[in-house]
């Protein structure tokens, strides 16, 4: 039997509020294990709330008009000369141009080296018995397809609220998170962007504390009247 548990409601949940005040453009709760996408207009701020704590939100970003220009973990890391995302990190495209900026971050550091889980990589990491566990790559493919994107458009992603330390000898791994219920990250769009989120369904590593919980996505327009 394939175990597919998730927690949709719990007393410890904290749905928090938008990090940057402004007119509400969008407010959506991403169900545990589900995919979600939206276009965030230039200047608007996307707040992602870790409702249940330590729930990885796998994230890809594309120019809203030219999908060929997309988030590049490598360009971002090279430009800031640091492997971790923090407040002030500018999320660059593969052409080296700004897509979004991290304008608020309530977790010590955010990951962009751990990649997304997939059914296929699950077979490598945990064994072939995990082949039928749902995975982020599935969410990316289905959510991407709504925008004409396919496997050729999947690249190294961001994992909001996930913790991947790199040790001195190069050993790296997904370890217990540093987030908590209600913690937020806020991203300002530097141009119109398409954001795709997979609320990670992984149940074989601590990227979500082995318990998928909701993520809240709020978009505000700081220049609009709240």
């Amino acid at each position: 039997m394939t175990v597919t548990w998730a927690t949709y409601e719990a007393g410890y949940f904290d749905r928090s509020e938008a990090y940057v005040a402004g007119a509400a453009v969008l407010d959506h709760e991403i169900a545990p294990r589900a995919g979600w996408s939206a276009v965030v207009r230039a200047g608007h701020v996307l707040t992602l709330v870790d409702v249940g704590g330590n729930q990885s939100g796998d994230c890809l970003i594309y120019d809203a008009v030219d999908h060929e220009e997309r988030y590049s973990a490598q360009a971002t890391i090279a430009a800031q000369r640091n492997a971790y995302l923090v407040e002030g990190s500018v999320l660059l495209s593969d052409e080296g141009r700004a897509l979004m900026t991290v304008v608020g971050n309530e977790v010590e550091r955010q990951d962009t080296i751990g990649g997304a889980c997939s059914k296929e990589s699950n077979t490598l990491r945990y064994g072939h018995h995990t082949m039928f566990h749902h995975a982020c790559r599935e969410n990316f493919l289905l959510e991407g397809a709504r925008h004409g994107l396919g496997p050729r458009d999947l690249v190294s992603n961001i994992n909001w609220f996930m913790n991947v330390p790199v040790e001195a000898d190069g050993t790296l791994g997904i370890v217990d998170g540093m987030s908590a219920p209600g913690k937020r990250v806020a991203l300002r769009a530097e141009r119109d962007v398409l954001v795709i989120i997979s609320n990670c369904p992984q149940v074989n590593n601590p990227c979500n504390d082995f318990n998928p919980t909701p993520l809240r996505a709020i978009v505000t327009d700081p220049e609009g009247r709240a």
Binding site: A73, Q74, I113, G114, G115, A116, S118, S121, L124, R125, S156, N157, V166, G170, T171, L172, G173, I174
Partner: peptide
């Protein structure tokens, strides 16, 4: 690249 680093647990 992410899987190339993650699967062997080595960056």
């Amino acid at each position: 690249v992410a899987d190339t680093q993650k699967i062997p647990w080595q960056a």
